[in-house]
Design a binder for these strands. Structure first.
Lengths: 193, 193
DNA sequence: TTAATTTATTGAACTTGTTCAATCTTTTTG
DNA sequence: CAAAAAGATTGAACAAGTTCAATAAATTAA
């Protein structure tokens, strides 16, 4: 059950077998069906999660009822609303399973416990937060500088396996365009080949 | 010289006077004139910096020669290219002083030293990275969901003091629009009052 | 204090992306 | 399997934002 998360951790930092085991024992498994929610806007996010199986989307719904997808999380990715989780504020985000999924969850209390008793865990989350920050920074630059066509092509190239598992509605919400326009982009690209 | 950074640190984590002093002694002051660069694309970012005085812009130049401003950093803000700094890769970013400025710089080696010898510093940077990540996540959502008019108004409301110190060229590059279009937005807004 | 440079404004033509409504295809569910 | 629901495509009219070129205003430098 915890092989994947163990591999994920030791990819980031050096940790002994005992430390890894101690940390992983703090997680609880949760099964979550397609279209079910791990978190809804308005709730306080009380967990940090690791996706063992399945696929999630993390999104926001704006005043006009439009979805913006912040990111997708498939196997081997972490999910949380870091804002709500760390500040104890109501979340602005929805975390929804796109496929039948399995996550490992750690509570805030147990995470604090880990920070105190397994000091290297502090480094683990610093390093992971840095990495996700770098990724978001790159996406921000791309969104500011690239056209929707290019962002779509980049997406396919960067996440080919994700691309297979997602509807165009979801990809459009991630790219920040209407699904009708995505449809037109797809047609244009198909014609070019 | 280090009053501001000390205040900044203790705002994030609890640290004794000695620890604070020990950490701050690792920084070196650097004066940097308006229009000078702290970092250029292609260089490896070997520092993390704290702005004591002045104002910087951190930006990327895309294939078409357009600037995208990732963020501004005035007094009390931290600056680095976290991607280049942590991974030792050539930077894609420019960090340029918009005003005559003063920064406190710490080298990678000294930061590693701090992580090892002052364990709480690990927490400091985890917490700070989390905060900047949350801010970027909010900006990402805003960029995906809001119109340029609204983003401009939000910017003025959120950073009124920064707004005073920046040219419209720079604000446009931050908002991700042409400065001509910003000019038209400004006209429209002025007419509404 | 000019001259030079940078910044800001404006208009016209254009491109990118949206909206809405209709139709078709695919997937899900009873 | 049939019916319903969700997803995908298309076209036409529209809105948002860009580009280019010209001009004006403000800063900077000699």
């Amino acid at each position: 059950m915890t092989e994947l998360i163990k591999k994920n951790i030791i990819k980031h930092i050096a940790l002994s077998e005992e430390e890894t085991e101690a940390f992983c024992s703090l997680f609880q498994q949760k099964l979550i069906g397609k279209k079910s929610f791990l978190l809804r806007a308005g709730e306080i996010c009380r967990f940090e999660g690791f996706v063992n199986k399945g696929l999630f989307r993390v999104y926001h719904i704006d005043q006009n009822g439009f979805e913006q997808i912040l990111y997708f999380a498939a196997e081997n990715w972490w999910i949380t609303d870091i804002d709500s989780f760390t500040n104890g504020m109501p979340s602005q985000l929805y975390i929804e399973a796109i496929e039948d999924s399995e996550v490992l969850l750690i509570s805030k209390k147990d995470k604090e416990f880990a920070y105190t008793n397994l000091p290297k865990i502090e480094k683990l989350f610093r390093v992971m937060t840095q990495k996700t920050h770098v990724a978001l920074q790159r996406r921000m630059i791309d969104n500011l500088s690239k056209t929707a066509d290019q962002r779509y092509l980049d997406f396919i190239e960067k996440y080919p396996e994700l691309f297979q598992r997602l509807s165009n509605l979801q990809i459009a919400a991630y790219l920040g365009i209407s699904h009708e326009f995505l449809s037109k982009i797809r047609k244009k690209i198909a014609g070019q080949k």
